[in-house]
Simulated assay, not measured.
Amino acid sequence: MVEEVDRQLDEEYEVTYEVTGEKVDSIDFNAGGGDAADPKLETVDNPTLPWKKTVRLRGIEAPVVIPVTVDADGSGDLSCKILHKGRTLAEESDAGTVSVTGCVAVSPIVG
């Protein structure tokens, strides 16, 4: 049992983040590094949409992508998605919801 937990904590996996829509001011995402309790987020300012990024995470690190928009009226389409081996782990498609919560998934290693 302990060996299985240790293996899961060290196992690496890749996820692909996708953000589509009309416009976002920035995108924050877990790029790996840090740890499960305090992930290292990176930011891309004024990205061209659609935007896609594949990252390597480890163990129980949660895949996270958060498109940030300062357009308070909520106009325009915005969606985010997290993919692992072609399978969708998380997806949101309401501009208001996406810009507030983004997409967060459970690590496929433990999920």
Rank of each mutant, 00 (worst) to 15 (best):
G74L: 00
G76D: 00
W51M: 04
V65T: 05
G21Y: 02
T54A: 15
M1T: 15
V98G: 01
T54I: 12
L89T: 12
D71F: 06
Y17D: 01
G76W: 03
D45G: 12
G76Q: 04
K23I: 05
T20S: 03
C80T: 10
Y17I: 02
H84S: 01
G86T: 13
T69D: 07
S79N: 08
D28L: 15
V70M: 10
T48Y: 11
V5L: 03
G86W: 15
E11S: 02
S99P: 03
I66E: 14
A37E: 11
V19W: 04
K53S: 05
T16N: 06
G33C: 05
T43P: 11
P63E: 11
E91C: 10
G76K: 00
V5H: 08
V2F: 07
I82N: 00
T69Q: 05
K81F: 09
G21P: 14
L49Y: 12
P67Y: 09
E22I: 02
V68E: 00
T54V: 12
V100E: 15
L41Q: 06
C103V: 01
E14G: 09
T97P: 03
P50N: 15
C103I: 01
R87L: 14
E22G: 09
A36D: 07
E4C: 14
E91A: 03
D45L: 10
P39M: 04
P63Q: 01
G21S: 11
N30H: 04
E14Y: 11
K52H: 07
E92Y: 11
P108I: 07
S99H: 07
N30F: 02
G74A: 03
A105H: 00
G32Q: 06
R58L: 12
V5G: 03
V44A: 14
T16S: 06
V100L: 14
V64F: 00
T97K: 03
L78A: 05
E4T: 05
P47L: 13
S93A: 03
P108T: 14
M1P: 10
P67M: 08
A62M: 10
G74S: 07
M1R: 15
I66W: 08
I27C: 12
S26T: 00
I60G: 08
K52E: 09
P108Y: 15
V15L: 15
I109L: 10
R7C: 06
W51V: 07
G32Y: 04
R87V: 15
G33H: 06
T69H: 06
T97A: 04
A36S: 01
I27W: 08
D77E: 10
